[in-house]
Design a protein around this nucleic acid. Structure first.
Lengths: 255, 255
DNA sequence: CGTTAAGTTGAGGTGGATCAACGCGTGTGG
DNA sequence: CCACACGCGTTGATCCACCTCAACTTAACG
């Protein structure tokens, strides 16, 4: 969106004026003001790398628009998406260590970023900023552990259901309309499976009357209950408690 | 160890005088002194629950001796160990939220614990304590993401190799002697597989001349290189960089 | 020495990876 | 404008790593 230089990652570089971004919301005016002096908005096109694995981390940031994937790669090339960062999610390592994931734009994305060192000294001056980081990282740890459970114990069908449920709760439209913000490839990499298996799972859910939709990126959830009962996760445990109250007690299925 | 009351979790309850525990090492004398006033040592027997899943968290703590497992359970009973906490590791949630894992002693264990609220106000007074928590949680996030990669992409043989490698690096004796601190059951639950598969993998490594040892909990690693090359993980990425300095450049294998 | 839990070994079934083919939308260049 | 290539998603057929169930061995303990 808007013109950009194809030879760099960065298509725009200017002050962040957003108040609602991941860090800034809820901070004191002073802290926000100081942060805004450090903030730079950067735009990445789908596929571009924001921070490479094993590279020293020099920025801390938060996603404004789009989806950023946190990817890990094994020596032999096998890889796994260990986190999908959506708007308001934060990323970055705090000590000067090397990044243990590579951060890549899964779609065109805008991020608000801070240079690490000035950011860290700002954390020293404003403990509220450090507290926000601590809570953000704690939430990511929870999410990662939820995902470990999913990867280790659930079938592909259940994993896909859980994935859809997450996004449903986050930003499904009134009539269950849902835009899946990532490709099948990324879905598969996040769910620890293959594109073929994801495809089969989605078709199975359509046949079962849980989903509708012909376009691969856009679906409609027609039977929320059954989707939730397939997932087997406690809704609150998926960070989706905010929407659709009381879908917790509906779901009793034997394996 | 020592007498205990079978009707409570707690077999000993007294001041923590250790300076080398997870939190205390490296802190300023003032912070250490204030912390020690809050600290209580509790002893748990293997199998006892320290914090239950979905229970409100009222303690923050650090492991002094033994192994604590962080367990997650699905509605239908399937479960997964999402973290093994060894001495110096910390646990606990910072805001007053409910715990999303259950913490259980995997062996007889001693932990040093703090009540959450006084601990949090201590964090406010001593930012260095909050910084330690932030780094601790960040490290746990890294570990969880490593494990996601392992669970999603690696074979059982590779997972077992990685598991052994972690403990090798942490506390293997001179001649590769290694005491596995958890049961096969816990190993399997941590590795996202079954006891049978773990057993077969270990026997296969013995047959291949990588391991020796007749007692199930005690083995000797006779071919470190091959174990490391089986693992496929970067040694630094396993939190095992501290020990056994240069085992990094040895491992080049094709899949 | 009986009992029970932990670990190992064997035999069989299966969920999902793999390999391959095909449809579809999009971009590119002649 | 068509021809072609290319990426993406879907579908089908095959195969294998691992789960499951079951039997057996070993260790631990009263």
């Amino acid at each position: 969106m808007s013109s950009h230089n194809p030879f760099t990652n960065v298509t725009a570089l200017h002050r962040c004026t957003k108040v609602k971004c991941g860090f800034c919301s809820g901070l004191s005016p002073e802290a926000r003001h100081e942060l805004s002096k450090l903030a730079r908005i950067r735009s990445y096109r789908a596929g571009q790398t924001i921070v490479a694995q094993a590279e020293e981390v020099h920025i801390i940031g938060t996603v404004l628009e789009g989806v950023v994937r946190a990817n890990k790669t094994l020596r032999d090339g096998r890889h796994q998406i260990v986190g999908l960062l959506l708007p308001s999610d934060v990323f970055g390592r705090l000590d000067g260590a090397t990044s243990r994931v590579s951060l890549e734009a899964a779609s065109d994305a805008n991020v608000c970023s801070f240079k690490r060192q000035p950011f860290e000294s700002l954390m020293d001056r404003f403990p509220e900023i450090e507290r926000r980081m601590l809570l953000a990282v704690s939430d990511q740890l929870d999410a990662a552990q939820d995902w470990m459970l999913l990867l280790a114990t659930q079938s592909v069908l259940e994993r896909v259901a859980t994935f859809l449920l997450m996004f449903c709760a986050r930003d499904a439209g009134d009539r269950g309309a849902l835009d899946i913000p990532v490709s099948r490839r990324d879905m598969a990499a996040y769910l620890g499976t293959t594109v073929e298996s994801v495809s089969r799972a989605m078709q199975a859910m359509k046949r079962a009357g849980i989903l509708e939709g012909s376009h691969s990126r856009h679906i409609e959830v027609t039977d929320f209950r059954r989707l939730a009962s397939l997932s087997q996760h406690e809704p609150e445990q998926l960070g989706i408690a905010s929407r659709l109250p009381n879908i917790g007690q509906n779901l009793h299925t034997s394996r």
